[in-house]
């Protein structure tokens, strides 16, 4: 199987699915999974495989299929993604990982870079939705008491103050006690959007870029055991990927099942670029 995929990389994309983004007049900047606009949009099945290129790899493919719907309004393009998940996982404690989905687009026009997160000089632009980030957006970043309600720490030195000389530390000095924050790691701050925008030039090189536009919202249906996530992005993202009506482009997907300990390179992926046609007048 590995040989076939490698050949596909060499000889160009074997297109396993064909996603068509239909033009609509509805404003898509704030669309949600349950909106009526999605009702008549066909679902395109996209097959995923267990990530097979770098270690660690998942032993089992937990997400063989993701269904994709796409629409655009001339300014925004929205994708509605549906996949099966036995349970919902929003991470939090040690050893818990979040359900997540990502869409990847080439940054440069022409033939796309290697599907495995691009290459040096030929980057990819990724929209990474996490259930954990959505929880941040909705409820704020969890405090230790939210994660461990029965925990009873004696005293945090950065919060200590008394009525006399010890006045407590300002926000900047308190950050020293959280190395991730003090180093400016986006991971350690509250997420104000459920979607991280990322640029990568190969495996392990991803870095978060400032995200002020793209949005995402997911709903888990415990009866159907299904996640439905909508990610909307502007068609044109300066310094990122640019999509145009009338264009035949490419995209790719990845899904992480948090409850199955999937995180990082333990994920299901599209082994090849998927065709993306943006219908409508140019």
């Amino acid at each position: 199987m590995r040989i076939i995929f490698s050949l596909a990389l060499v000889f160009g994309s074997v297109l396993l699915a064909d996603i068509k983004a239909v033009k609509t007049t509805t404003d898509l900047s704030k669309t949600l999974p349950a909106d009526s606009v999605w009702k008549d949009i066909p679902k395109e099945p996209v097959n995923l495989v267990a990530q097979y290129m770098v270690n660690p790899k998942p032993k089992v493919n937990h997400t063989p299929l993701i269904e994709v719907q796409a629409i655009h309004d001339g300014q925004w393009i929205a994708f509605r993604l549906t996949w099966k998940a036995d349970s919902k996982s929003e991470a939090g404690k040690t050893g818990q990982f979040s359900d997540a989905v990502a869409m990847q687009f080439p940054v440069k026009e022409g033939s796309p870079p290697p599907i495995f997160m691009g290459m040096k000089g030929n980057p990819v632009h990724i929209f990474h939705w996490r259930a954990q980030y959505q929880k941040d957006e909705e409820k704020g970043k969890p405090e230790m008491k939210d994660l461990y309600p029965n925990m009873n720490p004696d005293m945090y030195p950065m919060e200590f103050k008394d009525s006399g000389h010890v006045k407590g530390l300002n926000a900047e000095k308190r950050e020293v006690y959280s190395p991730g924050k003090a180093s400016g790691n986006p991971q350690s701050y509250q997420k104000n959007s459920a979607v991280d925008e990322i640029v990568a030039e190969g495996f392990g090189s991803s870095s978060v870029i400032e995200n002020k536009m793209s949005r995402g919202h997911g709903v888990y249906d415990p009866k159907q055991k299904t996640w439905t996530v909508v990610i909307s992005r502007p068609l044109v993202r300066p310094n990122g990927s640019v999509l145009k009506p009338g264009q035949n482009g490419f995209m790719a997907f990845a899904v992480w099942q948090g409850a199955k300990q999937e995180v990082g390179s333990r994920k299901a992926i599209t082994p090849n670029w998927v065709s993306l046609q943006i219908l409508g007048p140019t």
Binding site: P56, G95, G180, A182, S183, N185, Q187, V263, G264
Partner: peptide, 13 residues
């Protein structure tokens, strides 16, 4: 561990 790049995958743990 570079605290500015770690994403908490836990592979080191």
């Amino acid at each position: 561990i570079d605290q500015s790049r770690c994403k908490g995958y836990g592979e080191c743990v």
